[in-house]
Design a protein around this nucleic acid. Structure first.
Lengths: 128, 128
DNA sequence: AATCACGTATCATATGTTGTTACATGAAAC
DNA sequence: GTTTCATGTAACAACATATGATACGTGATT
């Protein structure tokens, strides 16, 4: 698919698609071709590619909106709060990342197709 | 203390302090007095007041920067991803909130004083 | 050559948070 | 009573981040 096609499906813009896909390309998960007939193709087996891989390829962004703002604050109060909550945030993050590692793109594809079949069925019965 | 004094300690601005403190006041954790000699006083026992109470009083803001953006998306792909990760995010959030409930302000105060004593000690030995 | 599509720098827009100003309300001091 | 002090809150400004858009370069196909 081209960035343009992907952008339409995601209701966004080809450049935004390319920005994100760049991470996946650098990780070798997809390949891109320039020129006529170019675009993006998947380059890895979906059964062994997990959301954790995607997450890492996209730069492992912060999960938490709250939490330790400063790593080594001079403020002693801030130090106390950080110390009290550090392990909790760490455990929560580990939990999520491990879960990401258990979801393969093949899993998602299968679930999507179930939903899509159900959608088609419902649509047909609605049209009758 | 006055909002002005608190603002200096937190390197921010009195109005910002009042905005945040308003949540704690509405929850009855602090009281404020106007006029000469006014300001903020703690109105609850620090031993039974936890970070979870504070978190709720402040409006239970979102913990996660990532995660389900849309609650019931029309997009089937988005539905699949949400379904695969919903429980993980839920468990992670529960873990953190439970941990917040185990940290009382008295705990934080005790930890702070330990740090403060250590700081004073170090400072004195440095000055000798 | 002309067209197509990615790669990427640069700028514009939108959004949310934080900081600031302004003014009203109420309380103590003189 | 009026002056000073401090909160309460609305309204506006400043800032940061994310997203969208434009422009132009590179390489590939027709």
């Amino acid at each position: 698919m081209t960035s343009e096609e992907l952008a339409v499906h995601m209701h966004t813009n080809p450049v935004v698609v390319r920005r994100t896909m760049a991470g996946l390309r650098d990780a070798g998960f997809v390949q891109s071709e320039k020129g006529y007939g170019g675009g993006w193709v998947i380059a890895r087996d979906l059964g062994t590619l997990t959301l954790r891989d995607i997450y890492n390829a996209l730069g492992s962004p912060e999960f938490f909106a709250l939490g330790n703002r400063t790593e080594n604050p001079a403020c002693l109060v801030e130090q106390s709060v950080n110390h009290a909550l550090d392990s909790a945030f760490h455990e929560a993050e580990t939990l999520i990342i491990e879960r990401l590692g258990k979801v393969s793109l093949a899993d998602l594809a299968a679930d999507f197709h179930r939903r899509f079949d159900a959608y088609k069925k419902e649509k047909i019965s609605h049209d009758l």
